[in-house]
């Protein structure tokens, strides 16, 4: 007993003060990309060719689809003029699929739910996570939100065991052929009104498995999505930021 108390003393208080203060993110974190149109040699297309997930296109200028981007740095490494860079800005969550395309305009970060949904979910949001293919990377970074560091439940958000107890789904993975039915059944088991939160490049677009015949290019065209959190996988603080934006707890 004494050693348990001693251990408790030694481990100390570890919950981060976010969102009251800015989160500590790794300086090398690849977060929101920054594109300098003035430096870009429009005709070179090196970044477009290097991108493994066809996230970069040139439509009157370079556009980056964060829903496809896996933040691998390949585009930055080949850019001859230094026009592309990843900043360590962790804020990436949006409400609409088209808001994930950046380069020619600023990212439009997620707005809070409408007033009726805020009335229902604003103080208590129970989420069920469904893993539908993918690599388990998004799952582990969702899971850590329940550790003492992030302490998700202090925001009234909980991950629950049954879809029947849930207000919405966190979907990860590209929706493999073999998981599509189970994912749809889980969604059907959630009582309305319900939310769908797509976490990671796979769930948004298929990610590195996009166009494989064994999967469905994510949940975007299958269920109505209320929140998109891009990344491969997103940093836990990016996921938390998205959830808190949806509930109007983070606005900046």
């Amino acid at each position: 007993m004494l050693s348990i108390l001693r251990a408790r003393w030694q481990q100390g208080h570890r919950t981060i003060s976010y969102p009251d203060s800015a989160p500590l993110v790794p300086d090398r974190l690849r977060g929101l990309p920054a594109f300098r149109a003035d430096l870009c040699r429009q005709k070179c297309a090196a970044c477009i060719e290097a991108c493994p997930t066809e996230a970069i296109t040139n439509q009157d200028g370079i556009r980056i689809d964060l829903g496809r981007c896996i933040f691998c740095n390949a585009c930055v490494e080949v850019c001859p003029s230094g026009a592309l860079n990843f900043t360590n800005d962790h804020r990436l969550a949006v409400r609409r699929r088209e808001h994930l395309t950046v380069g020619q305009r600023e990212i439009e970060l997620a707005a809070e739910l409408n007033s009726e949904m805020m009335r229902i979910f604003g103080r208590s949001l129970k989420l069920r996570q469904v893993s539908s293919g993918g690599c388990n990377g998004c799952e582990v970074d969702v899971n850590v939100l329940t550790t003492v560091v992030f302490d998700l439940s202090r925001f009234g958000i909980n991950i629950v065991a049954s879809p029947r107890h849930a207000d919405g789904l966190i979907v990860t993975g590209p929706i493999t052929t073999n998981m599509k039915l189970a994912t749809l059944k889980t969604y059907a088991a959630v009582p309305a009104p319900k939310l769908v939160i797509a976490v990671g490049a796979c769930a948004i677009s298929g990610g590195v498995y996009r166009d494989h015949p064994e999967q469905n290019n994510g949940i975007t065209d299958i269920l109505p999505v209320n929140l998109y959190i891009p990344g491969c996988p997103p940093h836990p603080i990016t996921i938390l930021d998205g959830l808190l934006r949806l509930l109007g707890r983070v606005k900046k």
Partner: peptide, 28 residues
Amino acid sequence: YQHRGIERAILGGPHRRTLHHMETLAGD
């Protein structure tokens, strides 16, 4: 349930995505 066709996709490779398929064989 998690089958996403990696061994089939990397045949004929290495392709642009092969390294990333390796990174995501098992995310942990």
